[in-house]
């Protein structure tokens, strides 16, 4: 009969935002619960308040250095909404797509196999309404 205990795996790779997994074992050494913790907190939501419109895409790029383009695009789209932009100029659309494809290539094709890939926040860039995985 063992004591209930905790196994901690930290840091977890394949996640920006410094993940930690804790596995809670009961007295019979069975897994009672497994938790994923995102341990990094920076407070972007609060400190971008009051900044100038065009600073925000540049600031939120720094949410993630692996997928900065995704955050930049999400912020740019949000700024579009604020400004009431429905239709992008063709050049802007092409630039955005080019940047995004470049990021995909860098993450999935061009970098070494040790870089965190698919589960980075870039996954959420396809769903513009969801929050990003790390703050």
């Amino acid at each position: 009969m063992a004591e209930p205990r905790l196994i901690e795996i930290s840091p977890v790779t394949r996640v920006e935002g410094h993940g930690k997994v804790t596995i809670h074992l009961d007295a019979q050494n069975r897994v009672e619960e497994a938790r994923l913790h995102i341990v990094e907190f920076r407070g972007f939501e609060r400190f971008i308040r009051g900044r100038l419109l065009w600073e925000v895409p540049v600031i939120v790029q720094r949410l993630c250095g692996i997928c900065p383009v995704s955050h930049h695009l999400a912020a740019a789209k949000a700024m579009d909404m604020i400004c009431g932009v429905d239709v992008l100029p063709p050049t802007a659309e092409k630039m955005r797509r080019l940047m995004h494809y470049g990021q995909v290539m860098q993450s999935h094709g061009c970098t070494s196999s040790t870089s965190p890939r698919r589960t980075c926040c870039s996954a959420s860039a396809r769903r513009p309404s969801s929050a990003t995985s790390s703050r």
């Binding site: 907190f41 920076r42 407070g43 939501e45 609060r46 400190f47 009051g50 600031i59």
Partner: peptide, 20 residues
């Protein structure tokens, strides 16, 4: 470190956590 300079706030840490 932009969290350090939130103006007019007595409790910047709490504000950041609550906003998030």
């Amino acid at each position: 470190a932009m969290r350090n300079a939130i103006m007019q706030s007595d409790a910047p840490l709490r504000e950041c956590l609550e906003e998030a």
